[in-house]
Design a binder for these strands. Structure first.
Lengths: 210, 210
DNA sequence: CCCCGATATATCGGGGCGATATATCCGCCT
DNA sequence: AGGCGGATATATCGCCCCGATATATCGGGG
């Protein structure tokens, strides 16, 4: 699960662990509180599998020779630079970069089914978050697979709900069911939008014979 | 987390593991898929902590004293018993029963705060599912604590949402925010209902000066 | 009679999480 | 100067949960 998120972020640019966690927090934060206890082991796993690689133990400033001209003009620049570029040599940090193998894995994780028990909510949300990397049809497949899952859950809920449980449990179950229904509606919108984007021409006439 | 659910079910009647899982599935199933890999270790933990106890390895037939005369009369009884006892009852299953200590723990878990990171959704849902065991004021406190949590999340979401992320992530975040708002509204209803139940007299006049 | 499926208990490997340990660097106050 | 505190950064520990699997025992049907 985490792997997908990591690969997705590294797809855009190489990053080190700490930064990765920050971005994970600000981009996917609304669905996930990633912890170091998961992140670093996951990075190790990915590296061992050859999906990512360490680019260089202090690559942040590629400026071993980078400061040529500056030197002569003013003495202050040195100080100024210290304030301006507070991070010429950050520290021991390890920058991770996606390998071609990792790219494959990413596509695989993004496309593949996951075990039905595996926290479907999070799994779907994560895939959806990165689904810009999917072709239009694969994206639609993802949405529709999710739709089927929700619908099945809804059916089961409506089937089981009738009786049992006290007032509070019943209320909870009802609210849950409602939420599921709402998610379903949202998905329908998304699917419709996706279809519209795929066929930008059905101005009139209607009925694309789906 | 699981402990609370187990204690909650055992509070009503003693059960063995297998049955426990079934009930967990049918009563709280809409929020949880409990697995044996969690259940049995949890039972062991609880037993070791003295919160539950094994009532008798073959309680199905409530015949503890049922065979009184048998004792002295014959030497065969030993062999006879070996054949007679293993069959009348179900099987080796262990019936678990709540101890007074377990009752305390249940109340503690139900009332106490849980760590903010600990999957708030599930934690709240679980507590709410058993909140019939709470006094009216404690129940209200639970609801309002949850309300505060949701509200904070909502504020944070509205603060962070504006810009970043591509179209899909934005859509996801929006939907998430909406859901949170809906949960909040639901909670408000619950709180109002709870208040109404606690003060059954404000027929007219209104404004209980809260 | 034996096999099959339901009942029932238990463990294993693996992933996620919070807490914690350990460095290093930086700015700021003294 | 000096050093303290906080941000940066990597890593591990123990705990819990999960799916998969192993192992019995029972009832019933072929």
């Amino acid at each position: 699960m985490l792997e997908l998120a990591i690969l997705g972020l590294l797809k855009e640019q190489p990053l080190h662990g700490y930064e990765l966690k920050k971005r994970l927090g600000e981009t996917l934060g609304f669905l996930w509180g990633v912890s170091y206890g998961s992140l670093y082991p996951a990075l190790r796993r990915l590296e061992r599998a050859g999906s990512i690689e360490i680019v260089a133990p202090r690559a942040a400033a590629p400026a071993p020779v980078a400061m040529p001209a500056t030197g002569s003009i003013d003495g202050e620049t040195a100080a100024a630079r210290l304030r301006r570029l507070p991070k010429p040599t950050r520290r021991t940090r390890k920058q991770y970069r996606l390998t071609p193998r990792g790219d494959e894995l990413f596509a695989e994780l993004l496309t593949g089914d996951d075990a039905p028990g595996a926290d479907e909510e999070k799994a779907f949300a994560l895939k959806f978050a990165f689904c810009r990397h999917l072709a239009s049809d694969a994206r639609l497949a993802l949405l529709e697979r999710r739709r089927a899952g929700l619908q099945e859950r809804l059916a089961r809920a409506r089937g089981t709900t009738p009786h049992r449980g006290d007032r509070y449990i019943r209320s909870l179950a009802d609210h849950r069911t409602e939420s599921t229904a709402r998610d379903l509606a949202w998905l329908d919108e998304l699917i419709a939008a996706e279809r519209r984007a795929a066929h930008p021409e059905p101005t009139q006439e209607g009925a694309t014979a789906s």
